[in-house]
Computed example of a mutant assay.
Amino acid sequence: MASVLPSRIAALNRLRCSLFQTSYNPTSQRTGAKYLRRRLQGPSMMQYYPQEFTIAQANKIIPGWNLIDRLEEMRLDDVEQKKKRGKGTPKKAKTAADSRRASRKR
């Protein structure tokens, strides 16, 4: 029984990869192709969790109702209280000289 030369097997593998559009990897290095071929999880996760329907969306759909979002009112009140105590978000720098980073570089 005659054995097949390794060069013939390599040529056959190369031809098979070109025909079936797979990657030719004769050294068996890790390429991550298994993970790239895998089905994406994002779309199925989006189908699993129901879409949220907020009060703001309801007010946009039906403008005459004017529903009140208590959580949003509480959040805005908390932001206002923080601003009064000086704990609000910092002001944006209008010029490069106003920024904190410019004052540190000196």
Rank of each mutant, 00 (worst) to 15 (best):
A2P: 15
A2S: 11
P6K: 00
P6L: 00
P6R: 00
S7A: 15
R14Y: 13
C17D: 10
S18H: 12
L19C: 09
T22Q: 02
Y24M: 04
N25I: 02
N25D: 06
P26M: 04
Q29P: 00
T31S: 06
A33R: 11
A33F: 09
K34L: 08
Y35G: 07
L36G: 01
L36R: 04
Q41L: 14
Q41Y: 06
P43H: 13
M46Q: 15
Y48V: 02
Y49T: 13
Q51D: 11
F53E: 12
T54P: 05
N59P: 00
K60H: 04
I62Y: 15
P63I: 10
P63F: 01
G64V: 11
G64Q: 15
E72S: 09
M74G: 08
R75G: 07
L76K: 15
D78R: 12
D78Q: 10
V79F: 14
V79S: 07
K82G: 08
R85F: 14
R85A: 13
G86V: 09
G88I: 11
P90H: 06
K92G: 09
A93Y: 03
T95D: 04
A96G: 07
A97F: 00
S99N: 05
R100F: 02
R101W: 10
A102G: 00
K105N: 04
K105A: 05
R106V: 01
